[in-house]
Simulated scan of single mutants.
Amino acid sequence: MTELKDTETRSWLEIELEDDMDEELEQAIDDARIPPELRALLETRKKSTLDRHTYFNELMRLQGELVKLQDWVRYKGLKMVVLCEGRDSAGKGGAIKRITQRVNPRNCRVVALPAPTDREKTQWYFQRYVPHLPAAGEIVLFDRSWYNRAGVERVMGFANEDQVEDFFRDVPEFERMLVRSGIILVKYWFSITDEEQQLRFLMRIHDPIKQWKLSPMDLQSRVRWEQYTRAKEAMFERTSIAEAPWHIVEGNDKKRARLNCIAHLLSVVPYEEVPHEEITLPERVFDPHYERRTLPAELYVPQRY
């Protein structure tokens, strides 16, 4: 009887693992959808040497550690901010998705602000970011951040050189203030080559499911590749401070980039496993006088599958 129960338990655990794998595989298949127009071009692309089995196993192991990190942040009342910057299509969103995939969204949230409103343009530049900073026990990931001023706003002419210079003067002190307030500030730059960005943009153009990711601003980023490069170099030089240095994630290989980013993030905070009380599922209370009603058939979603 015990042997049968162990077999059933292993099967149940395997089923749960397969469900998790299927969820991740669904996203991987989406990333790998190749329009016919690009098959020839993709033949010249450097293939990843990271096999799928290793990727999935490492991803789930690291995501398990992220859950422990989040528990530790809550347990100790820490405050954590993770900035994700990089060129368009560099893989920021994919990495953020994997970081947040299995943690508690109540205490780990993503901030992706739209272009500033006319009112926000008249405010102190950092003002619209401040309300999104974490309270104790929270992790906040910024999908693009106040560094828009050093990148897209500078290159596209949305900020003049005086405003950019003010930003470079102010941002180190702003970030030192955040760190002094107890915030753990981690800054990532996702880096890809010119050729890889071109390929990813072409995939978006030819793939109807991904066309929403391509904006007129993205197209301009191709035209102004070298201007973005110079802006990035100036940003690193003037804003990589001891309290909050930049960390560059090589992003041509998406899977390696995700794993490397998560592994590094886990190394930033010396976390420990938080002790939890053993959870016992309580018995359901049955009311012998309650009779479950039969609901009208039209309330149910049709079972097409």
Rank of each mutant, 00 (worst) to 15 (best):
K210E: 13
L199Q: 07
L178S: 09
L214M: 07
T193M: 03
E165P: 01
L178K: 12
E196T: 02
V152H: 01
R149D: 00
E165Q: 12
L214S: 08
W189K: 06
V223E: 11
V152G: 03
D170R: 07
E196D: 00
E161D: 15
R169V: 13
R169C: 14
G157V: 01
E173H: 04
K210F: 12
R176A: 04
M156G: 10
V152N: 04
S221Q: 14
P216A: 04
K187Q: 05
V223G: 01
V223P: 02
Y188M: 01
R154G: 01
V152P: 01
W212M: 07
Q163C: 02
I183N: 11
Y147E: 10
S221V: 13
S145D: 03
I184C: 12
I192W: 03
S215I: 02
Q220W: 05
D166V: 05
P172V: 06
R176V: 08
T193I: 06
I184N: 13
Q211W: 04
V164R: 10
L178I: 02
R169D: 15
K187W: 03
I183V: 10
Q163S: 07
D143M: 15
K187T: 05
E161W: 09
D194A: 06
V179E: 01
F174R: 01
F190V: 07
G157Q: 07
Q211K: 15
I184Y: 13
K210A: 15
D194R: 13
V223K: 11
F174M: 01
S181L: 00
V152F: 06
D143C: 09
N148Y: 11
R180A: 13
W212N: 10
Q163P: 11
F201P: 08
V164W: 08
R176C: 06
R149S: 00
F158C: 03
R200K: 07
F174Y: 11
Y188G: 00
P216T: 08
W146L: 00
Y188N: 11
D143H: 15
E175V: 09
I183L: 14
S215E: 14
L199F: 12
M177F: 13
P208T: 08
L219S: 15
L219M: 15
V179Y: 07
